[in-house]
Design a protein around this nucleic acid. Sequence first.
DNA 1: GATGAATGAGGATTCATTCAT
DNA 2: CATGAATGAATCCTCATTCAT
Lengths: 233, 233, 233, 233
Amino acid sequence: MPPSKPLCDQSTPFGAKRERRKEARPGELLDAALDLFVEKGFAATRVEEVAAHAGVSKGTLFLYFQSKEELLKAVVRHNISGHFKEWNNEFEAFQGSTAEMLSYCMCAWWERVGATRASGISKLMVCEAKNFPDIATFYQQEVIAPGQALIRRVLQRGMDRGEFRLMDLDYTVYSVMAPMIFLILAKHSPGVCVQDQVEMNPKKYIAAQLSTILYGLSVPPGDLAQSPKKARA
Amino acid sequence: MPPSKPLCDQSTPFGAKRERRKEARPGELLDAALDLFVEKGFAATRVEEVAAHAGVSKGTLFLYFQSKEELLKAVVRHNISGHFKEWNNEFEAFQGSTAEMLSYCMCAWWERVGATRASGISKLMVCEAKNFPDIATFYQQEVIAPGQALIRRVLQRGMDRGEFRLMDLDYTVYSVMAPMIFLILAKHSPGVCVQDQVEMNPKKYIAAQLSTILYGLSVPPGDLAQSPKKARA
Amino acid sequence: MPPSKPLCDQSTPFGAKRERRKEARPGELLDAALDLFVEKGFAATRVEEVAAHAGVSKGTLFLYFQSKEELLKAVVRHNISGHFKEWNNEFEAFQGSTAEMLSYCMCAWWERVGATRASGISKLMVCEAKNFPDIATFYQQEVIAPGQALIRRVLQRGMDRGEFRLMDLDYTVYSVMAPMIFLILAKHSPGVCVQDQVEMNPKKYIAAQLSTILYGLSVPPGDLAQSPKKARA
Amino acid sequence: MPPSKPLCDQSTPFGAKRERRKEARPGELLDAALDLFVEKGFAATRVEEVAAHAGVSKGTLFLYFQSKEELLKAVVRHNISGHFKEWNNEFEAFQGSTAEMLSYCMCAWWERVGATRASGISKLMVCEAKNFPDIATFYQQEVIAPGQALIRRVLQRGMDRGEFRLMDLDYTVYSVMAPMIFLILAKHSPGVCVQDQVEMNPKKYIAAQLSTILYGLSVPPGDLAQSPKKARA
DNA sequence: GATGAATGAGGATTCATTCAT
DNA sequence: CATGAATGAATCCTCATTCAT
């Protein structure tokens, strides 16, 4: 369904051996912190662990971040650098149907955010929002609001073009957001969302959700071909 | 050894009222614990706070729960009563269409779980799963597995009766679960899912999600009457 | 060596089933406390355990003893009720040689004190003397002083009667006391005095110590019969 | 999280001198721990006291020892250095009579162990053996076993050379050990072994015990010259 | 800058002691 | 009298933060 573009053109030096470059330290600390905060939660992560994962000493961490809390804030800020400008541009340029557009959105989101370490940020926010209201506010402004706006514009486009039913966008945005958030939680909190024994393939998951979002579960009134209860017609 | 140095011997000053209510204590403690764990997270909640909220002293808590972690387990157990037996019975007895049934399921879930304090458990589990694997396992067996099973049976019924399209249940269950989990997160992690300024009405939310799940967003192929922008195309 | 008298004429109702008689409570508590204090040490023993062993509740213990510390004091007092008057009388009446007398003393001590639960008191005092100086003082006055006095009189009798060498009693008393104290420690702190694999028979132990005390280890100058190195003579 | 509320910001008031002396800390802590454990018992000693005696803070102690119990183990290990190797060598090389040898043993033991702070370990072990079985085992292997072995060899030498009577070493070792243990108790548990008012001179004490051990208290049969009371009989 | 030894406030847990029933 | 629920001071231990080197 999504127009098969090469979605991953991030130039992050994946697989590059971590050499200790001075100027890289803060970034390595942020990476380590993100991993550990997501993995174990903020409170259960010791700064010493973060430092160790980044290959520096505990003291060094405090050279770059005033406190553990500031480290968390920096992690959030660092990992949600505004991709939205870029995405808005893609939105403007998109040519296909809105169904294709929605599909593209979700697939691109998965590849650029959901499948990366940055997805942990969402889980982190869910868990720590109450304890760090100002970060939550920041996160909302930087991520939730533009994200919702983007989705709303897609849905609006669908309505405008007569492709989508008329709907109350205030609630329908969540039809798109919920499956994405859920996917992240399933990824980061195994066993609490999804049954352990069932394999969860993100691509298939997204395809299934898209299908539901676009076409619903019900057999369309006139489309009886699929029905195993033909007799009824 | 003795409660040393009673510097001022006012007899029974304030807050020192000793009440003996063995029966009531555990429940009050569990309630307080649920609220605080959901509010602040497990690690960030001090047992003394829990005790204070329940109107007892720190020591009293340990009279009823071996440890903070046992308290958490007890909270999970206590709040996940046998809704599923009841629901399975309702499932067997349900007479209407499967669309009505799904609607009934989601609304009933909201009223009996989502709208109650117990809903916080889901968020709690998401946040603490990694740190308390045995609780996560317990939660999966007691909640996730029967919940998914119930939803699958509803969907299966829809397919069997020709009301729903044929679909891969392994992924479609999440079309129902995701919006519910999302609603809980919206409730318990302010600002992380939903924009603060937008009022979120759960009933309307559920109606909207149901509508999407059942009928999708797209205008059905033969049903062009709905489209206000038909002319534009 | 000791004149074989029936040493054990204590009329304690051994093996009598503990029936809960009100007036017996304090005694049962003292017995339980002695056992536990000796077994685990004062600090490591919880009053609740003591109460449980005595078959009463924690609160009841405090009905009879003001505090844990008072309980310890009572245990000490209760278990060193002055047998010395009686023993002094036996001393006055004793007819045999002083060697026999010393033998009798040690054997009687073992049967009346060392082998009974009361022996635990000595260990208790060793461990807690520093923390409870006033009990230590009491113990010294009631046990150590009269005990030493009795031994000194025996030794003095030996010197007076020409049976024993002339000696400085201030130091020689310990030749008798040390083996007895050691036996108690060996009994109550296994593995810290005696090698685990070696069986320790108290009767044989006392016989061996008596032999050393009375005759020493050296072959008497004129007595060469025992010597495997006869050639030297 | 931060060392909250620095109410008075006098810079480095008292006791807050931060000294970095990684090498010296463990030793100082072990010394302090030995003193306090012997003085007050293991349970009655607070780790904070130990730290304070060593001139460091509570936290520093846990930098070097995993737990209070590990600290105790370390104290035992540290203070039971290889005296036995040295002593065994001296044993091999010893030239004099076995009586001289035994005398040398006891005097050397007093000077190298009994008179030092390390002697308190024996008392400590007696008191804590039941609560720390693994430490007791360790102590037995490292101290009791080699100590007994050494004494047995001395006694065996005496028998082999015709200097000592034939005896059952399993029990006679204690004729040597008991006075030494007793001396330690007298030193560390005041008033429980020795009467306070009587001055206890260790050198004289050892001489007296040696005399008893070697020659006994009885007047040798043929040696009537010593008896001052012979006439009286 | 970087380190890691040192700090000490804070939190979980225990347990002697009290007191309402 | 007896009970055992309730209390809270005391203690071990952790870990964010500081600072001498």
